[in-house]
Design a protein around this nucleic acid. Structure first.
Lengths: 130, 130
DNA sequence: AAAATATATTTACCTAAGTAAGTATATTTT
DNA sequence: AAAATATACTTACTTAGGTAAATATATTTT
């Protein structure tokens, strides 16, 4: 069997585990971070915007956002369209964000330190091409 | 944020979804296939051998193997050491295996058709190096 | 305006993976 | 031989993702 796919799945699982471990210090999981990150970037987002941006299905975002609301990272604003839920970072989340970001940058640095900058760019290019 | 990790996670999720769709014709999931594949390769394996080979935790394999036993793909042989569970493919699984393998080869061909052989080798190398 | 259709989110149920703690059996130490 | 430790697997609980179907609200057609 083609070892490429096996390796890709393994690496993905490994990186998720390491990332979860890194984010533990902020009581966050990787998927929660990915939602916080894109909401921060766009300031306000509807759930549909989030799941389209992150390329996952709607129920996944319903769940993660609900958890983040429970944990106090996210506030819900009622939209004009009463079907949709508009979401933004809470005060506390905005305050904590830079520290979490620091952890993320550290994680990314550690996980790519075996690659030169050129290799990193090449790897990204090949992944996208596949 | 470094787009490399985002891309890797996305691609992994995408490939898992496509693979699950391909394997649906055999009523199998990707993770079930990975267990069947390594058990076939080694003929007989203990659960510990399986989870070490696949680089996952023990409970994951307990669950997947149990499901495969239920579905009739795997038989359990009692080991000499009564703590351990030795596992092999069922007759039916051995019979069906080549067809599933064909599906897998087709999947791999489709998913790597945008890469030249050289790029494929390079991608694998970079993933391993990371 | 009523009916039909579309969109946004949720609910229910499934696989897939993790950690922590429990149980049963082997092995090693004392 | 008894006690302590190690190993193999399981159980309970959590996140993370998926599909299919339900619900509520908007929009479009008739």
């Amino acid at each position: 069997m083609n070892p490429l796919f096996h390796e890709l799945f393994q690496k993905s699982r490994f990186l998720t585990n390491v990332l979860n471990l890194s984010l533990k210090e902020h009581d966050l999981y990787a998927s929660q971070w990915s939602v916080l990150f894109c909401v921060k970037k766009h300031e306000e987002m509807s759930l549909t915007q989030i799941w389209k941006y992150l390329n996952v299905e709607a129920p996944t975002i319903t769940r993660t956002v609900n958890r983040l609301v429970e944990l106090g990272w996210i506030d819900i604003l009622p939209g004009v369209d009463r079907r949709e839920k508009i979401v933004k970072l809470s005060e506390r989340a905005l305050h904590k964000f830079p520290e979490v970001e620091k952890t993320m940058i550290e994680f990314e640095r550690n996980m790519s330190e075996n690659l030169t900058k050129e290799e990193e760019i090449l790897l990204l290019k090949l992944l996208k091409k596949m």
